[in-house]
Amino acid sequence: MSEEQASLYDRIGGAPAVDRLVEAFYAAMDALPQARTIRAMHADDLGPVKAVLKDYFTQWLGGPALYSAQRGHPRLRQRHLGFPIGDNARDAWMACMDAALEQAVPDPALRAAVRAPLAPLADWMRNTAD
């Protein structure tokens, strides 16, 4: 299989890279002032949500279907309807993800390849006006 045919999951480094990405994402959520609102949407203990995001990203990036095996179809928008997600929340989420990608995925082209489909996904998750 060529590099272009390999999944993003494999190209970024598999499970260890997903772990780094998710840990860095939630570290950014705790550190970035603009992420206070989205951090407040989470429980104090981030352990359970980290496990869910690791399973989701593993599957979303083309790795094993861990998320679906545990939770069924992702139905992301439906699962997030209880949280007010407007432009500010979307932008804060992307700021955290950009910081995490910078830390966890050293190759700029791979970072861009992961980010490119995340931006419209984050935009699609909006369910309220700011």
Rank of each mutant, 00 (worst) to 15 (best):
Q34S: 10
T58A: 05
R11N: 01
A92H: 12
A92G: 10
M125D: 09
F83C: 00
P74V: 14
R11T: 11
D91Q: 15
G82I: 03
G86D: 11
M94D: 02
A129I: 06
A104W: 10
F57Y: 07
A92R: 08
A116C: 05
R20N: 04
R126C: 11
L66F: 06
E3H: 13
D44Q: 09
A43R: 14
D19S: 08
G86H: 01
R36Y: 01
P64A: 13
D45Q: 03
L118H: 03
G47Q: 11
D98G: 03
L21Q: 10
A6K: 14
L53V: 13
L53G: 01
A51I: 05
V105M: 00
L46G: 11
P64F: 14
F83Y: 14
R71F: 13
Y9C: 13
L81Y: 05
T128A: 08
D44C: 00
A43F: 00
I12F: 12
L76Y: 01
P16Y: 11
A15C: 14
R20A: 15
A69H: 07
P117Q: 10
L118G: 01
P117W: 05
P74Y: 09
S7W: 06
G62D: 10
Q5K: 12
M97S: 12
R90P: 06
D87W: 05
D45S: 10
H42P: 01
Y67Q: 02
T37E: 10
T58F: 15
D45V: 07
A112D: 11
P33A: 08
H42L: 12
P120Y: 10
V18M: 13
A27C: 04
P33Q: 10
C96P: 09
S2W: 11
P16T: 01
G82W: 03
Y56K: 04
N88E: 14
V52P: 02
V114N: 12
G86L: 05
D10P: 00
P108N: 10
K54F: 00
A99C: 13
M125Q: 08
E4C: 03
P84E: 12
G14V: 04
N88T: 14
H42F: 04
V18T: 08
A24S: 13
G47F: 04
A92E: 07
Y26D: 04
A99P: 07
P48C: 07
A65R: 15
R79S: 04
A28S: 14
R90H: 00
Q103P: 05
L81H: 12
R111H: 02
W60P: 04
M125V: 01
G63D: 00
L118C: 06
G13Q: 14
T128Y: 01
Y26T: 09
A40K: 01
K54V: 09
K54Q: 06
A122T: 01
R39P: 00
P106A: 14
R71W: 13
K54R: 15
D19L: 07
R115I: 12
A116W: 02
F57V: 11
R75K: 15
M97P: 03
P48V: 00
E3Q: 08
K50L: 07
A24L: 04
A17F: 03
L81A: 12
H73K: 13
E102G: 15
A99Y: 07
R90Y: 11
A119Q: 15
A122W: 08
A116E: 14
P120A: 05
L53I: 06
